[in-house]
């Protein structure tokens, strides 16, 4: 893989909190790695594990799913379902040799621009430490 541009991160951000949080990071002129490709979704509960597995197959080194903090979901409970789902997907990925650190679930509110930039930076560092993935399609 070409690590020149750094690891590829696909970020699924919920429309109501995390996407606005990323916006906040931008408008506050905070820097965060440009390796992340952001996809806006209505809710972290919208993120089908299929989207994550497909991202890995298509060459992502890491996948970030970010949503509202527990209790703050715009749809009341979507993030609780997401938490269960990805809590189980992570061991499955690990079982087939995709290190579980490559999938992250984070809570970022719309005012947490700083947290968003920290999350992406630390994720990138982690992925650089893990190195490129090999069985990409």
């Amino acid at each position: 893989m070409d690590m020149n541009g750094g690891p590829k991160i696909v970020g699924f951000l919920c429309n109501w909190c995390s996407y606005a949080g990323a916006d906040m990071a931008g408008t506050s002129r905070m820097s965060y790695p440009a390796n992340i490709r952001i996809i806006r979704v209505p809710c972290s509960g919208r993120v089908d594990p299929l989207l994550v597995v497909k991202s890995f197959q298509q060459g992502a080194d890491g996948v970030l799913v970010a949503g509202c903090h527990p209790g703050d979901c715009h749809y009341s409970e979507g993030n609780y379902y997401a938490r269960r789902r990805f809590g189980l997907l992570r061991p499955l990925l690990d079982f087939v040799g995709v290190e579980q650190e490559r999938l992250r679930l984070e809570w970022v509110s719309s005012t947490e621009g700083k947290k968003f930039s920290q999350v992406v930076s630390s994720f990138q560092e982690e992925l650089e430490r893990l190195g490129p993935r090999e069985n990409r399609g």
């Binding site: 499955l92 087939v96 069985n135």
Partner: peptide, 13 residues
């Protein structure tokens, strides 16, 4: 294998 892996992982999930 990569396509097949998507099938098997999601089937299991």
């Amino acid at each position: 294998p990569p396509e097949n892996q998507v099938w098997h992982l999601i089937r299991a999930f």
